[in-house]
């Protein structure tokens, strides 16, 4: 076409729709939601203010009992501590340079998108699991012996330790509630997988649940196994047995928000766009009795 209908910039690679700001922002949101682990294990509660009043469970009282004809129903309740919970924002940003935009560097931009999306959800997992572990009143046990098969006869007994943790949750709730999930780091799963009885089960399980197919242990001692390094970021040798959804809620003030800011408005000549991602939410662990931490798995 002759004339001024198209400028040089319009014909450059930076016009690739896959790296347009709208698409990059959408990609951040899409990748972010793919990575949820901790949030799927909690209940969900949208909130419309940043500080909410909350309760933390203490002792459960009352029991179900036979009813007499003229008698009253027994009251079941729990004492609780009332407090407030603040919800804070968190997020991060990255920049795409004009050269990346001009060179149509889709792969580089995709890596940055993934980085910010993974970092956001990993941050949430760290906060969630740290809050559960440090919740006041959560049960805590030591592994009888380290889960280290190289110790031979002195190696621990994971089945027994997990069984004790399950029992701890039941005892703390007057045998009323049962744990259904165990959360382990990838290193703990590696330790666990070294035991012969786990190994043979893994290798002999066929079909879509087989270890060879999925690479993960599906269930252990009746508990759903969830692998997330955020449960034990420092490799202290710690696992968490708990009742998912009921132990607490993810309180969300607002979901992920993204923004694309042209570099020229920031006074950065070589930056095409600065992309920001932020969200506002925090876990609120109201019923710590529904969890039990197993410590000293490695030492």
């Amino acid at each position: 076409m002759v004339g001024a209908a198209y400028k040089e910039k319009d014909l450059s690679a930076s016009n690739n729709p896959l790296i347009s700001p709208e698409v990059v922002e959408s990609a951040i949101k899409l990748q972010y939601q793919k990575n949820f682990i901790g949030r799927t294990l909690l209940g969900y509660q949208p909130i419309d203010v940043s500080t909410v009043s909350t309760v933390e469970e203490s002792d459960t009282s009352g029991d179900i009992d036979w009813l007499s004809e003229n008698g009253a129903l027994p009251k079941l309740d729990f004492t609780f501590l009332k407090g407030t919970k603040r919800v804070r924002p968190y997020g991060g940003w990255f920049e795409v340079t004009e050269e990346q935009q001009e060179d149509n560097a889709e792969d580089e931009i995709r890596v940055m998108i993934n980085n910010v999306a993974y970092a956001m959800s990993y941050f949430e997992d760290l906060v969630i699991f740290s809050d559960i572990i440090s919740a006041n009143g959560i049960s805590s046990i030591d592994a009888t012996k380290p889960w280290d098969v190289s110790a031979g006869a002195n190696a621990g007994d994971p089945a027994s330790d997990v069984g004790r943790a399950k029992r701890a949750v039941k005892t703390a709730t007057k045998f009323a509630q049962r744990a259904d999930t165990i959360l382990m780091s990838s290193l703990t799963i590696e330790y666990l997988s070294a035991f012969d009885y786990i190994k043979s089960r893994l290798y002999n399980t066929q079909g879509p649940d087989g270890y060879i197919v999925t690479g993960v242990v599906q269930t252990f001692m009746g508990l759903i196994v969830v692998e997330d390094d955020a449960i034990d970021p420092d490799d202290d040798g710690r696992a968490l047995v708990f009742k998912k959804k009921d132990i607490g809620v993810w309180q969300e003030r607002y979901a992920i928000r993204t923004k694309s800011i042209p570099g020229s408005t920031l006074g950065k000549d070589q930056v095409a766009f600065k992309y920001t991602a932020k969200a506002k939410g925090e876990p609120n662990i109201k019923f710590p009795k529904l969890g039990c931490v197993i410590n000293d798995l490695y030492t």
């Binding site: 440090s134 009143g137 805590s140 000293d296």
Partner: peptide
């Protein structure tokens, strides 16, 4: 809950469960 117990004061002699509960307010 409610029991009164004695634990080693030296952190090196405490087990993981003791260190964890001390830290979490348990």
């Amino acid at each position: 809950k409610g029991d009164v117990i004695t634990i080693p004061a030296d952190e090196m002699k405490q087990t993981g469960a003791i260190r964890h509960t001390l830290k979490s307010g348990g």
